[in-house]
Amino acid sequence: MIKVATDSVEDGLMPAEKIARIQVAGGSIEEVAVSADDITPDNKLVASEIGKRGDAVLIELPRESASGRWRIWVNANAVVL
């Protein structure tokens, strides 16, 4: 598993849920509602690495994002091993 930097983390619709916003490679923001356990104390999102291409890393989110995506490209410097 990897940790991915977030733009923000907010409370979700119920106590066990958090809303994380992640910057996609290219600049747009992806929002995903996840289990609070998927957010580290320093507000990083626990995700899975799927592949790499240049300076970008393809990650799989813990759940489907608000835009309907499971996998997104993020900048490699947003990923913490």
Binding site: E10, G12, I19, R21, S28, E31, A66, S67, G68
Partner: peptide, 13 residues
């Protein structure tokens, strides 16, 4: 309109 760029389910909800 969930397909709108920048749409936030959290903000909406």
């Amino acid at each position: 309109s969930p397909a709108t760029p920048g749409y936030s389910f959290n903000d909406f909800s």
